[in-house]
Design a protein around this nucleic acid. Structure first.
Length: 510
RNA sequence: GCCGCGUUGGUCAAGGGGUUAAGACGCCUCCCUUUCACGGAGGAAUCACGGGUUCGAUUCCCGUACGUGGUACCA
């Protein structure tokens, strides 16, 4: 009997993978790797009504991009498959029936309409959400209130029904959470959760217990939103007689909206102008396409780092960690209890750190798509590499390379001529006209020589170099930004320099 | 409503009976740079509130407030 650490991530293929989801995978992954254990991916596709085609593949793609590959999964297989819950359907029924025989669960034949009627008629100001529980179950149509013969008849006729857990009365159910310590709930406050749905599929509650047991999961990490239903799961482990094999629990804090009020949701990205998905997610129902961190120009290493630090630290001042370092240093007891608000500025800062860590050559293939996206042609990689070396320090996102370096590829679409006009003079006009005339000299074409020559000509013309630098920059770049002007000039070459300068000169004259 | 969980600057956060309460992002000032950025030096800004316990509470306990989650045949 091995006690190897086994953790799982069990996403539902009904939507894109967003921040909270990726962080849950990450912490699972880090914990498993830290302990030399296994990381299992299983797919919770029991809610067929919300199943989205392509969503499962999307999950694989995201994990792949993040570098968090599972040891066992629907794709890879493994000794405890299948790893898709829809393919395990028969299994759950067996355990549900076992629970019924033991008297821990029961059949319920109430229709959705009957349930709604019950909730409506029992609703009061004091109890706005009546539950199907110890107080109400004896007024409903279920195997507790009907004779065995009646139940058998309904079952034989194929009457739609669900299986519900019979929550005990007056029990305190407690367990130890690795992050929060002792947590207790009263069994009276949890309703008789549906275990098996009318379509034969299990709910999360049954499936998570059965699968965790069968797949020998040792540690279960999930979002804090599961805390209130933990008693159901604890009870199920007990009723099924598996209590000794129950995993240790850890409920992770939530990732909150930056502007207060609620769990970060898919809508917030759109509203606040930052991604919430790992990768681009296309909502099949609405046809809406939402870009992810990848499309915004984040490096996966940075993305992982950002998520890791949102709720965890190693008690040092270090903030930038590689995945290997995270694996080495991650411990669950240093995970925060409180939810964290996502801060896009800090996220960009992390990405900048990773951009600076990469060599220019490494950045070439990563930056290329973000340049091509704008229709610019990249003649050779060496040129792009040089551009990268000149602008990388001012780029937070891969998409910034275009913003900061577009003038290396095409003439500026707009030029801030107004910024030149103020202190413009005939003398300066003449100087630039003169300067571009002598650009043909081949020996001129290196940034230092170009600068030396420019300075000399300015002095000869009785002008201060300082007065001419900004106009030159604006002519070449379009605005007051970018790396050294003579570096830019050298890069774009004499034809481009001449044509950009002359274009602006013409504008200034009119 | 009820129940659970939480609460250290604007944000991420360290600390955990005695501290000048770290650090980072962001913001501001200055230096560097004839641009922008990078880098460097400074600065403003925090223990939700009220009661205990204690010589002493940001830290422990109890309340309150606030936040957040759950209260589905969704996960």
């Amino acid at each position: 009997m091995s006690n190897k650490v086994r953790v799982r991530f069990a996403p539902s293929p009904t939507g894109g993978l967003h921040l909270g989801g990726v962080r849950t995978v990450l912490y699972n992954y880090l914990f498993a790797r830290h302990h030399g254990g296994e990381f299992i991916l299983r797919i919770e596709d029991t809610d067929q009504s919300r199943y989205v085609a392509g969503a499962e593949q999307y999950i694989y793609d995201c994990l792949d991009w993040c570098g968090l590959s599972p040891d066992e999964s629907p794709l890879k297989g493994g000794p405890y498959g299948p790893y898709r819950q829809s393919e395990r359907k028969e299994l759950y029924r067996k355990y549900a029936e076992q629970l019924i025989e033991q008297g821990s669960a029961y059949y319920a034949f109430d229709t959705p309409e009957e349930l709604e009627q019950m909730r409506n008629s029992l609703k009061t100001d004091i109890n706005p959400t009546p539950q199907y529980d110890g107080k109400t179950r004896m007024q409903m149509r279920n195997s507790l209130t009907m004779t065995q013969a009646e139940v058998k008849e309904l079952l034989d006729k194929g009457t739609p029904h669900v299986v519900r857990i019979k929550m005990p009365a007056g029990e305190t159910i407690s367990f130890t959470d690795m992050i929060r310590g002792e947590i207790s709930n009263s069994s009276d406050l949890v309703d008789d959760k549906v275990l098996l749905k009318a379509d034969g599929m299990p709910t999360y509650h049954l499936a998570v217990v059965v699968d965790d047991y069968l797949m020998k999961i040792t540690h279960a990490f999930r979002g804090e939103e599961w805390l209130p239903s933990a008693p159901v799961h604890i009870l199920l482990w007990r009723y099924l007689g598996w209590e000794d094999a129950m995993p240790q629990w850890a409920h992770l804090p939530l990732i909150l909206k930056p502007d207060g009020h609620g769990k970060l949701s898919k809508r917030d990205g759109l509203r606040l102008g930052f991604p919430v998905f790992a990768m681009q997610w296309k909502d099949a129902a609405t046809e809406e396409v939402l870009d992810g961190f990848k499309e915004h120009g984040f490096l996966p290493e940075a993305f992982i780092n950002i998520l890791a630090m949102l709720g965890w630290n190693d008690n040092t001042e270090q903030e930038v960690f590689s995945l290997d370092e995270l694996v080495e240093k991650f411990t669950i007891d240093r995970v925060h209890k409180g939810g964290a608000k996502f801060d896009f500025d800090k996220a960009k800062w992390f990405n900048h750190q990773y951009i600076m860590k990469k060599t220019d050559a490494e950045l070439v293939p990563l930056v290329k798509p973000f340049i091509k996206e704008h229709g610019a042609r990249i003649e050779e990689s060496a040129y792009l590499e040089r551009v990268i070396s000149l602008v990388k320090e001012r780029c937070h996102l891969l998409s910034d390379f275009w913003l900061q370096g577009h003038f290396f590829f095409v003439a500026p679409p707009t030029t801030d001529v107004e910024a030149i006009k103020g202190k413009w003079s005939e003398q300066k006009q003449a100087f630039f006209a003169n300067w571009v005339q002598q650009l043909d000299t081949p020996s001129l074409w290196s940034a230092p020589v170009l600068e030396e020559n420019f300075t000399q000509m300015a002095t000869d013309a009785g002008l201060k170099k300082g007065e001419l630098m900004l106009p030159l920059r604006i002519m070449l770049v379009g605005g007051k930004y970018g790396p050294g002007v003579f570096d830019i000039a050298e890069m774009i070459g004499k034809e481009e320099v001449r044509s950009r300068v002359e274009a602006v000169l013409t504008q200034l004259q009119s």
